[in-house]
């Protein structure tokens, strides 16, 4: 692959109006570097479901279904490591602490049934999730990338990531599930304040504070205020 192929891809990114056309283009382009499959997704944390976080799904269909069904994300070393590093990495370079567990080895073994043996991952900022990762998968047993090929892949990955962020409209018009008051009450709860203390801080009655907390719990469909705080942080509605 020559550099101008990469810059041509970057140029085409501007014209992609849908995630689907971007995915098709990226898959066709990285095939020249030996990658048949790819996935761009938010990195799930603490039991978050993977499926709603996926932004480009170029995995073999059966594999994606099995991965989600079996909740592999929670044990897959590549997925776990994707939340812990900001730097692009070869799957084979994931530290043994995460890749050499029995469960992670099992995930890697199952992947080979779908022609996925090795890969390269590019973590990047996401405005919706903890962070995102674009993971490229290869059917070769050992992913051999020259230094130049890595550079080419990272460049394409970040432009794909930029394009996906530009295509998402969900932040624009969607109302926040929480009111400003509800967010404020959750923020003070996150800081360890009781309803009574929060009521003094905000100059509200304790009953009103509790009412806002209840509304916040209802908004997320959770039972406790602690869960509501966790959910609000996870959705980046509050930043304690």
């Amino acid at each position: 692959m020559i550099d101008s192929d990469v810059f041509d891809f970057v140029e085409r990114c501007r014209k992609h109006a849908t995630a689907g056309s971007l995915l098709t283009d990226l898959l066709a382009t990285v095939k020249n570097l030996g990658f048949e499959h790819l996935i761009l997704s938010g990195v799930p944390l603490g039991g978050q479901k993977l499926a709603p976080m996926v932004e480009l799904n170029g995995w073999p269909r059966g594999w994606f279904e099995r991965y989600v069904e079996a909740e592999h994300a929670a044990v897959d070393g590549v997925c776990i490591y994707s939340a812990k590093t900001l730097k692009p990495f070869l799957w084979s370079d994931v530290p043994a602490k995460w890749s050499d567990t029995e469960a992670s080895r099992r995930v890697a073994g199952e992947a080979t049934e779908f022609g996925i043996w090795s890969g390269f991952a590019v973590p990047m900022l996401s405005v919706h999730h903890w962070q995102s990762v674009l993971s490229f998968a290869s059917s070769t047993k050992v992913c051999k990338l020259s230094a130049r090929q890595q550079v080419q892949l990272v460049t394409m990955a970040i432009y794909a990531g930029m394009t996906i962020q530009a295509l998402s409209h969900d932040d624009e018009d969607k109302e926040s599930p929480l009111t400003d008051r509800e967010r404020e009450v959750l923020l003070w709860a996150a800081a360890g304040k009781t309803s009574s203390e929060t009521s003094q801080i905000l100059g509200l009655t304790e009953r009103t504070v509790k009412w806002h907390a209840t509304r916040a719990r209802e908004a997320f469909g959770v039972a406790t205020t602690t869960q509501a705080v966790v959910e609000a942080v996870r959705r980046r509605l509050i930043h304690p």
């Binding site: 810059f7 900001l86 990047m124 900022l125 550079v151 990531g161 930029m162 962020q165």
Partner: peptide
């Protein structure tokens, strides 16, 4: 790592190199 932020702002950024 931070380049997707430009995308989220719907900004276009031209690379001058790899």
């Amino acid at each position: 790592y931070f380049m997707p932020h430009h995308g989220a702002l719907k900004w276009h950024a031209e690379p001058l190199g790899m």
